[in-house]
Design a protein around this nucleic acid. Structure first.
Lengths: 228, 228
DNA sequence: CGCGGCTTTGATGTTCATCAAGTAAAGTGG
DNA sequence: CCACTTTACTTGATGAACATCAAAGCCGCG
């Protein structure tokens, strides 16, 4: 029964099932599970067996690794429509990073074996999948280079602009990450994040009210992001 | 004519054509071009149109980006059997990074449209492709996190061990990168690389003779790499 | 209500970048 | 093939950027 499932209008379809035959689409629709997560809840952890292919339907999640001393490194933030499963999903049996929600989120889960067998039967689908997975991995790599080449001020400006322009598309937003998580994302210390936030506030580049941030001077922040 | 091409024993076959029907394999064998590069020669540049899928048959190449001030950032070093084309190859029309040889290298080039149409016809092939591309992208992301979390000494130790253990599998090797390139790879300055090399030499952890390096005390280097 | 985690600020110190200068090596043109 | 230029390498001196350590206020939660 095509279109009988509740995801007929799901973004997931337009996002990457465009090339899909309806019968297969409905198989996926019937078999997928939707799971809701509250902030700080874990979707999966490093080392967990790869059982599902994950897709973020709504909300915001962080991908991260924890080292032996318990320090986290945030790899990236995934927004709605993003695949939470990266490329390793088809080549690895265990996850090489952890995922947890940083906002109320809904994740679609499709059995990985099911995904594989469908991909093997439908090469158009697997090409689409490859393109989308490729785009995400590329984005992570490029972003990591962008962050790496900046000094602390540039890193903070970059991340503020990312949240404002890319994620929330609004000059006012609620920062979904703690100061510590920001630090873990851009590779500086929590204190430095706070100090630079304060400087930006004193220079009237941003307004801060707890987690609420407003970008007041985007132009100057762009400059700081570009030229440190 | 299966097996009529000169790459019957090519690593490329065992590497990812295992699932390939012979007739298609020979199409690829017939159509591929092998190009040899000397150190410092460019395979392709940021912004170039994606025309080929590239595979490293032998040698060593670097993937890197150049910013507006002309400073390079090395993304990774590709070894034989590695795909030089990353995942973006199917989703992007222009390369987002540059590639140049750092040793005498031979690169196999296959028309990208040809690859795409074959992948669309053969889903087993496209799955294989996806797995391999995924593994490489994952490796780049993981390595970048590893480097990021270390201090300067740890970074240098890490990179020395990478060359020794992973790339050359030998405690003596000729460093294929200049001091500057090492710096561009791990995100510190050239002077710091040199200084830390000198310290390691004075502490008898390594022996340096120009480009020739010998790892003398792997154990201590491992410790420095792990604990900074 | 008290404990632990998050945030903030200040004082201090280390690490590493920057600047400068000199040597060695490698490419370039007459 | 040699003078010349350029690039790579090396060391030292200096300072800025950022981490670390310490302490206190704040908030949420059991």
């Amino acid at each position: 029964m095509p279109n009988s499932c509740n995801c007929t209008n799901c973004e997931l379809r337009s996002a990457f099932f465009e090339s899909f035959k309806e019968v297969q689409q409905s198989i996926i629709c019937d078999e997928k599970i939707e799971v809701a997560y509250s902030p700080s809840q874990t979707v999966f952890k490093v080392g967990d067996t790869v059982k599902y292919f994950f897709y973020l339907k709504s909300g915001l999640v962080k991908l991260f690794k924890t080292d032996r001393e318990g320090n986290d490194q945030i790899i990236t933030i995934a927004s709605p429509f993003d695949f939470v499963s990266l490329l390793g999903v088809f080549s690895e049996t265990h996850h090489s990073y952890s995922v947890s929600a940083i906002e109320d989120s809904v994740v679609c889960c499709i059995g990985i074996d099911r995904m594989k067998s469908i991909a093997q039967q439908n090469s158009l689908f697997s090409m689409n999948l490859m393109e989308r997975l490729g785009a995400i991995s590329n984005k992570i790599i490029q972003e990591s280079l962008e962050i790496r080449k900046r000094n602390a001020h540039g890193k903070v400006a970059y991340i503020l602009l990312k949240f404002s322009e890319e994620i929330y598309q609004n000059s006012v937003f609620n920062l979904p990450l703690s100061r510590r998580e920001i630090a873990e994302y851009i590779g500086i210390t929590t204190e430095s994040v706070i100090r630079i936030f304060s400087e930006f506030r004193k220079e009237k580049l941003i307004r801060i009210n707890g987690k609420e941030i407003e970008i007041l001077n985007e132009e100057t922040l762009e400059k700081i992001s570009k030229y440190g």
